[in-house]
Design a protein around this nucleic acid. Sequence first.
RNA 1: GCGAAAGUGGCGGAAUUGGCAGACGCGCCAGACUUAGGAUCUGGUACCGAAAGGUGUGGGGGUUCGAGUCCCCCCUUUCGCACCA
Length: 848
Amino acid sequence: MDEKYFPEKIEKKWQQHWDQTKAFQVTEADPRPKYYALEMLPYPSGFLHMGHVRNYAIGDALSWYKRLQGFNVLHPIGWDSFGQPAEQAAIKRGVNPRDWTEENIAHMRGQMLRLGISYDWSREIAAHRPEYYKWDQWFFLKMFERGLAYKKKSPVNWCPKEGTVLSNEQSSGGVCWRCGAAVEKRELEQWFLRTTNYAEQLVADIKQIADTWPDKVLKRQSDWVGRSEGAFIDFAVKDTDKKIRVFTTRIDTIYGATSVVLSAEHPLIDELLVDSPLKEQVMTFAEKVKSAKAISARAAEEEVEKEGINTGVLAINPFSGESIPVWVANYVLIEYGTGAVMSVPAHDERDFEFAQKYSLPIRRVIERISHEQESIAHDPTHEDQSTAMPHAFTEYGILVNSGNWSGLISENAITTMAEHAKAKGFGEAAVTYRIRDWGVSRQRFWGAPVPIIYCAKCGVVPVPEADLPVKLPDNAEFTGTGESPLAGVPEFVNTTCPKCDGPARRDTDTMDTFVDSSWYFFRYCDPRNDSAAFDPEIAKQWTPVDQYIGGDSHAVMHLIYTRFWTKFMRDIGLVSFDEPVKRLLTQGMVTNRVEGTDDWKAMSKSLGNGVDPDEMIAAFGADAARLFVLFAAPVENELRWLESGIEGAVRFLRRVYTMVWRWHERLTNVANENGIETTAATRSLRRKTHQTIAKVTSDFDALHLNTIVAALMELFNELTDFNADPVSASAEDTFAVREALEALVLMLAPFSPHIAEELWEQLGHSGGLLKSGRWPQADAELAKQDELEIPVQVNGKLRSRVLALPSVTEDELRTAALNDEKIKALIDGHEVVKVIVVPQRLVNVVIR
RNA sequence: GCGAAAGUGGCGGAAUUGGCAGACGCGCCAGACUUAGGAUCUGGUACCGAAAGGUGUGGGGGUUCGAGUCCCCCCUUUCGCACCA
């Protein structure tokens, strides 16, 4: 053993040991209970950044903890290796995307090895390899068989900068999730997956993970699915047999409807205006709205002013029989509900604003229920039109001016009016969702080809399973024009129809890369299977994932897709549960100061505030870098990078190293006997050791990794204070030091595994931590305090302390406090009103 | 605009059910050892005060013997959603 701590030497030694002994390879044959720890698989951009390091350090800490506790821990890694940057490299620099990707993977794998992350490398996977994406295609075909994958022409989100379609999830807020460019609407024919079929389950099953996923993620998912209860109501168009169906959550306000408003894209507009003199005007308006939306009105920061036009057509309110005008307006969305609404200005903010602008009537039909207005409640014919409303009244209340329904309260009216509509055949109660089907076609090369063939005779023909994978060609040209590069490869495009053998063409789009990541952690269970995506029996042994760790940027993308995918896999019998991930941790970002400013921003090349993990490893060692990122902040918080912080981590490791170096000879020479008495000299150290074990264990279960490191430092400080001489220490002292050092080293392993392995060996154990080490057990007796220092307050202010045994009674404590010299002096001349005694905690003397 | 979360030393952050505020680390100060120190070790470090003592968890109020923690109002920050009928 060296006298001094040389991280690079130790780290290399143990990385080799782990590799040679295949230390982290696991098998299903292992009888121990399983634990599946998973970090989000990275995109192989070429270099790890500190965000990755933090992610993997957290996952690795957990993996080590569970291993030392005796679990059979699956801790795999792979590559989300399809995607835009590889294609950009191909366009800009003419490199082959496959070569570019493989080189990046090789480099990043090296970085992970240098960090010493304990992955089972035998299970490594990469999405761009045919043996993986074959199964993306297989899943697509399964969905196609069941009608869950379908093609339709529709307005889709188009990123002009990247030249491809995006899903709704990827264009949240009207901007591209990757490059931030404003998203346009384009009319294209695209493949969609029916996520809407699972909308209800995606909301309902949240209760299964409500306690173990972060609230903010569940909230966003719930909002994204956007479940809304209401009713469909048909408004007949006057003098025609046509109907306009609207969706409303407030059927109780229907007597206040003063118009029906259609979105500009509503399909009925054409039909309704066939003979209308206003046709020209309305169509011009609708076109204007559509084009404004096409250039991304939704990406604009400010609210767009409401605009509309009266079509001159009348619709009949099925409840009141009243005829009201039909308008077309820019504030009604075709994507939601039915693309048409009944406008109730008195009880909806948007309708109110619209009505004011165009001087449409505002008719109040809901009154607040209050004591002052009790007379109104008892007088259903009450009509208060005299007072102009300053705002819409959007709360529930009591119905007025609503025919026979007046006098009902909103909650009841909503139910009974929907029932009435159904009985009369002009509507029904309904649930709508905001979530849309997942558009998966991408006009790109570097993805899994959509396994579909178009035949002039047979139409849309799925590629037979036996012909999978549909492989990417090697000779595509990358022009960056926005056309799928596959379309320019005749050898790829031209094929024969699997049904009739006639000439046919392949689909030239590839699938969204989020398809790859929707099921990848099932593949880790059975990564080399070439006859199935995975063997359900094997997957059953590992899944669901026990702990998933990643950034929260995927809250409504990856994390909703993978829940959808799992439900589909359940429905085709591959898995037997509803939710793929038991527990989710969303780690905070790693930020650094932007030079010349006071801003802390996520590290990035463009801001020039990046920190290279390799440089950190070279300067301080992987162990210190990892210890620092876990110590510096709670895992879910933002982590501000401070070079001095990592120096502190090295200092700590160096001190621990030196401590072991000073003791290792004595500890290996003096046999570790059991049954050694605790002495007055060792009691305090032994207590600290066992208290620390208890605290660290419970903090691990709560994922409070930063306070664990603090606790280990406290234990070390206690060891320093113990100050026994390694040359002449008594058997009792040696025993206590050994106990403390062994516990410290074992508990340090999840944070800084290389030095822990080295020190464990120096403490006289062979074969490595996983062979000879076990997570230490806290002895509750030893952890007990044998004397308590009880604070004594007078009128709530701390004035003194008294010493007491843990077994002290309430009366004894009261007496001790009142007899304390300082307290006596303070209560002298005052009346003691009462004395609060909290057993084992505190005494408060209340005086007057 | 709507919704949610959070405000604790110079900094990152600790603090069972309301019960000693500031653990641990960084930084800073002093000292030791050193040819030297951006190494190492020791001690100190919330604020005011020479001290006794007093004041302190964004601001204001409340509940309580006792509030960082619970309740109400306000301010600030961060995040999410932004015409979802």
